[in-house]
């Protein structure tokens, strides 16, 4: 009873900290708007993002096409609106997948120790031997570029990060009394992990996940710019920048607007992630 009260008051403090943190608030609002845009893309976009108008290719902005058209005569605004879907789907689901796989691996390694731990953590070390983008380029090249494969690719890049984080946090709380107590009364391992360990490392994972959504979106854009992204004609911001750069002299808007969209989205998630961290980590609160 007393414990719940303390938790409630803690939670209230966290929320008020969050609300006072203007950066986080702005980040959250922008992120929500972008999510809404992605969800309601079919309603919001004035045109079908794939519809071509061969007579209005590379048209400048006009009343019919607010941001103009690209070299296939497709409406840029509609493509940017639809592009949010790909970025968000890839960004969020790859991080979730990485979070799931990484946390599981990290917790298993941290809980059982011994050979299992060595095997898992060495495997993680191997993946960490490559810079993110380099690993992502290699994996996409092998799998081939489509939406699902890109999610898998980026999840593979994210997994070791989450695994190390979960592993490290687990080791630090493992010896705490309540875990030891739960063990001594014979609680089963999954239950201990779920009931006692996970809630305690959850905050840290959540912060990391929010920040890494930004990283994942940027990875996707980088891959697209290299030519290893979701294959055209699917509208994605990375593809649009890449194709827009070719016709920069005709229609600078294509690259500039889609680049801005990526920038704003990543910025929003970074601001949100920073804010959530300040909220959870009391040391930094108000700092």
């Amino acid at each position: 009873m007393e414990e719940t009260l303390i938790m409630q008051s803690q939670r209230r403090k966290m929320w008020s900290a969050f609300a006072r943190n203007r950066t986080a608030l702005i980040g959250a609002v922008v992120a929500i708007i972008i999510v809404l845009v992605a969800v309601f893309a079919p309603v919001l976009s004035p045109y079908d993002p794939l519809a071509q108008d061969s007579y209005a290719r590379l048209a400048p902005s006009s009343e019919a096409h607010w941001l103009g058209t690209d070299d296939f005569g497709r409406d840029i605004l509609s493509r940017i609106i639809w592009g949010s879907r790909v970025s968000l789907i890839i960004g969020i689901s790859s991080v979730l997948l990485g979070l799931l796989a990484g946390t599981l691996l990290g917790m298993i390694a941290g809980y059982y120790r011994g050979k299992i731990e060595t095997t898992i953590m060495r495997g993680i070390d191997v993946l960490m031997c490559f810079p993110d983008l380099i690993l992502a380029i290699a994996v996409t090249a092998v799998l081939g570029a489509n939406l699902v494969n890109l999610i898998i690719t980026i999840a593979i890049v994210m997994t070791p990060r989450f695994a190390r984080l979960a592993h490290g946090s687990l080791l630090s709380i493992k010896e705490r009394e309540y875990v030891v107590a739960a063990q001594s009364i014979g609680a089963r391992v999954p239950r201990i992990l779920r009931k006692h360990v996970l809630p305690n490392i959850f905050g840290e994972l959540l912060v990391a996940a929010t920040l890494w959504v930004g990283v994942a979106i940027r990875l996707e854009a980088n891959l697209a710019f290299i030519g290893l992204g979701v294959q055209p004609p699917t509208p994605t911001w990375g593809n649009m920048i890449r194709e827009g750069v070719d016709v920069l002299i005709n229609a600078p808007g294509i690259s500039i607007y889609s680049g801005l969209s990526i920038l704003v989205t990543i910025l929003a998630f970074n601001m949100l992630g920073d804010g959530v961290r300040d909220m959870i980590d009391p040391r930094l609160r108000g700092a």
Partner: peptide
């Protein structure tokens, strides 16, 4: 160049 007529006209 780019095999895109509009691009060529602009260049």
């Amino acid at each position: 160049g780019l095999n895109e007529a509009k691009w060529i006209e602009k260049v």
